[in-house]
Simulated scan of single mutants.
Amino acid sequence: MSDALQHGYVKDFKEKRSMYIRIFKRIIDIVLSGMGLILLAIPMGIVAILIKIEDPGPALFKQKRVGKDKKYFLLYKFRSMKMDTPHDTPTHMLENPEQYILKIGSYIRKTSIDELPQMWNILKGDMSIIGPRPALWNQDDLVAERDKYQANDVKPGLTGWAQINGRDELEISYKARLDGEYVKKMGFGMDVKCFFMTIMSVIRREGVVEGGTGEIEKRKLKK
């Protein structure tokens, strides 16, 4: 292949990738999140009622997260923990996190049902369906690691490449590296792959470890 032909191929690929990220990815986000909110309205309502029955208080909670270009936004989730749980503290940093988790909370976390309200964040444009999971506003270590890979320069997602490769079990440095890998390969094919692999991970309930950041590495050290 001549240099001119190769250059033209690379330029065409970059233009198509840019068009997908700027236009088609957003259209897909709007369509799928809108459909999801409509089709899952009744099941989500039932989940909200069950949460309030077990532990009176709001079924939803808002949490400040880091968005594209490190701008903050309010992320919505179903409340899976008791009202007296320390606020804005990552689960892995809580002492004995199991004491705070609701009975229904354990189930909706393992099945990722607690993340469904984020379809509203996607519809609003705060998030995308696929992308790095948004860090808490005070997770400076994760944000700093992601800066190394330009992973803070894209919209965070409901699920992403790191989530299907270990999720809660990953060390922060490795998680950020996977987020950077997604940014490099970002495109329709990569998003489709992440979407369907996420479905399989949810069905298998893989990678959800309460208080478990770095569990993969810990298991290696024990061997």
Rank of each mutant, 00 (worst) to 15 (best):
N96L: 02
R133W: 04
R26S: 01
M81I: 00
I27P: 00
G214A: 09
R167W: 03
P117I: 10
Q118Y: 09
Y107L: 14
V143P: 12
M83T: 13
R146E: 05
V183P: 08
D147Q: 12
I53F: 13
L178N: 06
V192W: 00
S112A: 12
Q150R: 12
M119Q: 14
Y100I: 01
D126F: 13
S2D: 11
W120V: 15
H92L: 02
K184R: 10
P132M: 08
D69T: 05
K175A: 07
I113R: 07
Y72V: 14
I21F: 08
Y100C: 00
P134V: 10
N165K: 01
K11Y: 09
G105V: 04
K155G: 03
T159W: 06
I108W: 13
I122V: 15
E217G: 02
I172L: 13
I30T: 07
K103M: 05
R146W: 06
K124W: 03
E181M: 00
A59T: 10
E115D: 11
R109Y: 07
A48C: 08
K71Q: 15
W120L: 15
I130Y: 09
H7Q: 14
L39G: 02
L74K: 15
I199T: 02
I216A: 08
R146G: 04
G45K: 09
I101P: 00
L123E: 11
E215A: 15
E15T: 11
E169A: 12
I113T: 06
D141N: 14
H87D: 04
K103P: 10
L142H: 11
M19Y: 06
K175N: 07
R17I: 03
S173I: 07
V183F: 04
I216C: 03
K110P: 02
R177S: 13
I108N: 12
K52D: 05
P134L: 12
F195L: 06
N165G: 07
V154E: 04
K70G: 12
D168F: 04
Y100P: 01
I23D: 05
K193E: 01
V208R: 01
S106C: 04
Q139L: 01
K16W: 06
D179H: 04
R146H: 06
M93S: 08
K184Q: 12
P117G: 11
W161N: 01
G57V: 08
K82Y: 00
E95S: 13
Q163E: 03
K110H: 11
L37Q: 01
L74N: 15
G8V: 05
M44N: 02
L170N: 00
L37K: 02
A48H: 09
G105L: 09
G45C: 11
A144V: 04
Q63S: 14
Q139Y: 03
C194F: 00
T198E: 08
L5T: 13
L158R: 11
S18E: 10
H87T: 08
P90V: 02
Q150K: 15
P90K: 01
R167F: 06
T111Y: 10
V154T: 09
M83G: 00
S112I: 04
Q139K: 05
G36F: 04
K184E: 10
R146D: 05
M197P: 02
I28W: 01
R65E: 05
G67N: 12
E171D: 13
I28Q: 01
V47K: 08
H92V: 03
V47M: 05
L5F: 14
L50A: 12
